[in-house]
Design a protein around this nucleic acid. Structure first.
Length: 280
DNA sequence: AATGGCGCCTGAACGC
DNA sequence: TGCGTTCAGGCGCCAT
């Protein structure tokens, strides 16, 4: 479920309450995507730093008090998968059937609820060493990184031979847009999702990048999209799905031209688009 | 090197 | 009511 906006909303809603908290106990339920990678007790006594985000991953530094960790402290790399959500509360509630990770601290409890268990919580001795570094290494640039210029985005598009929708989903050109926001950005940019990347000129590339940035920024402001499971760390749902123009709207009239929105399948994922507003 | 497909899981919605 | 099928926000890994 969660794409970059949901992960960022999660980060912001968790960060304040958890920073500086000392770990008192750790619980794991059913297996997640990967094993934690360290004994649960190894985390007890550590102190949480500021939660960070890279793509759709979250990084929670957990330092050992009194030990100089230098520039790259150890921590937990977390991912929400398709159905995950993090919560934080001063008082830990009774664990639900899908709560597969709980971190008890002296400031409250952080827990991951994830029915499908595609999510992950993995210990890494640093963000810049394996396994965290290995998982983060494949990620493309952040959407709001000033180094990601329209010219560079266009140049990256020229290298690829896939349809543009799949390139956006791959996260190699720019991270953060999943199925909802890739569809929305392509609609707002007026680009047919089947267009081969290399066929997109510099102006349209610049427009697409701008719309990706707009959609992600607006979704963050709206608290993300809640289709089913997602909520922030305090339990609040997102609202961006209400302003989605094409995603999940097959058969409904396009908000611009009235043409029925169509659904097609690309790389085994649904793509929603307006056949009139979006051109190759 | 790049690309397409698979599989990991559960739950909800749908058709018969 | 019940059962089988399809689909769902992601992504690492494998074979080609």
């Amino acid at each position: 479920m969660p794409e970059l906006p949901e992960v960022e909303v999660t980060r912001r809603s968790v960060a304040g309450g958890l920073q500086g908290a000392r770990v008192q106990a750790v619980e794991m339920g059913l297996p997640l995507r990967w094993p934690l990678g360290c004994p649960l007790d190894d985390l007890v006594g550590r102190v949480a730093g500021a939660m960070a985000r890279r793509g759709k991953y979250l990084w929670l530094p957990l330092v050992v008090p009194g030990v100089a960790e230098g520039e790259d402290p150890p921590g937990l790399l977390m991912h929400l998968g398709m159905s995950g959500a993090l919560s934080f509360a001063p008082q830990a509630p009774a664990p639900g059937p899908w709560d597969h990770f709980r971190l008890h601290t002296d400031q409250g409890c952080l827990w991951l609820t994830d029915p499908r268990r595609f999510g992950a919580v993995v210990y890494s001795a640093g963000r810049q060493v394996a396994p965290a570094a290995t998982l983060l290494a494949r990620l493309g640039p952040e959407p709001f990184d000033p180094a990601l210029t329209p010219a560079r985005f266009h140049a990256a598009l020229q290298q690829r031979r896939t349809p543009v929708k799949q390139a956006l989903l791959s996260g190699e050109l720019v991270v953060g847009a999943g199925n909802i926001y890739a569809c929305e950005a392509l609609f707002l940019a007026g680009i047919d999702p089947r267009t081969p990347c290399a066929q997109i000129g510099p102006q349209r590339a610049a427009r697409l990048l701008a719309r990706v940035q707009d959609v992600l920024a607006q979704a963050i402001t709206a608290g993300g999209s809640t289709l089913k499971d997602f909520h922030d760390a305090n339990g609040a749902a997102g609202h961006y799905q209400e302003s989605a123009r094409v995603y999940g709207r097959e058969g409904e009239p396009c908000s611009v031209c009235g043409t029925p929105i169509r659904r097609l399948v690309q790389a085994q994922r649904s793509t929603y688009h307006c056949p009139k507003c979006q051109r190759r």
